[in-house]
Every structure is written in C-alpha cells, then in structure tokens.
C-alpha cells in the first residue's frame, strides 16, 4: 500500500474532468510530478492551467477523476465505489501540506508581513508562536524582506508583496508548492526579483508546479514542461524537447506567438 519514496511531495492527477456549466475546462487530465521536481505548465489563456492548479489543492471540486499527494486523496475519501467529498475541516488540514501562491498575491491587507506569515502555522497547525515567529522571520529574510516584517502589504511594492506571499505559503512547511502565474500582475522590472526567489526554492527540493508565461524561466528551471490547451495536456517532456522541438502543431503555434 505505502509507496516508499525517498522524499515526500509526489503529486498525481488522474483522469480529472471539470466543467463550469456547459463549458468543460478540464477534459481528462493526467499528470504525475515526482518528489522534488519542478513542473512548469504553459498554455494559452482559458486553456485550463489555472483550474488544474486549483483542483490540486481542492479550491475547485472535480466532476470525475482524482488528485493524490503522497498517495493520499485530496478533497475526497473513498467510500465503496464512490469518492465522497471530505468535510471542510479535513480539507483545510490537507491544504497545510500544499502551499499556494496567487497571481494577485491575496495578502491580508490589515495584517503586517510578519502577521501574514505566522497566521497559518499558528491557527491552522496549532504551533506555538514562540516557535513560529523566528521561523517566519527567517522566511522573510530568505525572500529578502527581513526589514519589512512590520510593514503592511499596501506599503510594499508588488514584487515585495509577492515575495511575502511566497514566505506565507512556505510557513506551513508544505511538501508541494503551487504557483498560479506568480509574476503576471507585476510591472516588468519587478518580475526578476520574484523569479529569483522561486529559482532559489526550486533548488531546495520542494515539489513545485508553476503556471507561467515566462518561457525563459521554464527553460532554465523546469524538469518537465507541460503544454495544455483546451483542457487537455497536449504534450509534456523536458524543456529542451517541448520548447525547442515541439511535436505538436498547437504547441508550435503557441510558442511562435509568445517567443
């Protein structure tokens, strides 16, 4: 039963279907991300890449299929021959193992940077403040914002806000990190500082799934690049293969447009 892996953070997505009304945004997605690997998801807008990411931490329910992390079903439990959605309390507990970074940061504006980072470890994981706070300060230092611990989000630039959001996502010590277009809401000159932080994390051995339009970032860091279009994975493989020698016409057409 138990899959013995050296490291934690194995993500499996199998046969996931998801519709909004009559529009099917995911039509049978299969994806396996090995522990510690960096997977970059690219694709045209509306192709379902953000939805896929949101399905992985159960911000969206699925119509069919399942997501598992380290062999545990996310958001559902098997009851006979059905998958029953878990109670919210259990889903919330599962989410502390998955860090999520939003395109629009979604920092809590009324809390300081430090309060943003310590909130989840204290209230969701019940860890003592005395242990969490030094760790949170260390995380802020890691993203280069040790001196901004007492600033509120509105007093920070977009790049700084996103770096605080990354520190906040790391605070629950997740096994998997999900990035939903982390640099799309930033001014061009601020993109670099956020990508630098993500690159630093990529080398630390956490499993990462990054939805992005930064092809250069994909080429440099991805173990696997996944091209998704119209709710299906069109092709996947190492960056050198998918980005430089795409096998499918649709991938070629997309890359011609963005490069």
């Amino acid at each position: 039963m138990t899959v013995t892996t050296e490291r934690e953070g194995l993500v499996e997505v199998h046969g996931v279907h998801k519709s909004y009304g009559t529009l099917e945004v995911l039509s049978g997605v299969d994806l396996v991300v090995k522990p510690g690997e960096v997977t970059v998801v690219i694709g045209p807008s509306g192709s379902g890449k953000s939805t896929l990411l949101r399905v992985i931490n159960h911000l969206e329910k699925v119509d069919r299929g399942f997501v598992a992390i380290d062999g545990d079903l996310i958001g559902y439990a098997r009851k006979g021959d059905t998958l029953r959605e878990l109670k919210e309390k259990d889903i919330l507990r599962q989410r502390t193992r998955i860090g999520f970074v939003f395109q629009s940061f979604n920092l809590f504006p009324h809390l300081t940077a430090l309060e943003n980072v310590v909130e989840a470890p204290i209230s969701a994981q019940g860890r003592p403040r005395s242990e969490v706070e030094p760790e949170a300060r260390a995380l802020l230092e890691r993203v280069g914002l040790a001196d901004k611990a007492d600033a509120r989000p509105r007093q920070l630039s977009g790049g700084q806000q996103q770096r605080v959001a990354i520190a906040r996502a790391l605070a629950t010590r997740p096994k998997v990190l999900l990035f939903d277009e982390p640099t799309s809401a930033l001014d061009p000159e601020l993109v670099g500082e956020v990508l630098d932080v993500i690159k630093d994390l990529a080398r630390s051995g956490t499993t990462m799934i990054v939805v992005t339009h930064e092809i250069g970032f994909a080429r440099e860091l991805a173990d696997t690049v996944v091209f998704i279009d119209a709710g299906r994975i069109v092709e996947q493989g190492p960056p050198a293969q998918v980005l430089d020698h795409p096998a499918h016409e649709r991938t070629k057409a997309f890359l011609d447009k963005v490069l």
Binding site: K89, R93, T96, N106
Partner: peptide, 15 residues
Amino acid sequence: DQGQHEAAAALGIPR
C-alpha cells in the same frame, strides 16, 4: 475581496 477568502482557505486556516 473573494481572494481573501481563497487565500485563507488555501492556507488551511479554520473556518
């Protein structure tokens, strides 16, 4: 903002 609910949920903060 809806994003605030989502961020809190994504962090696993109790309801």
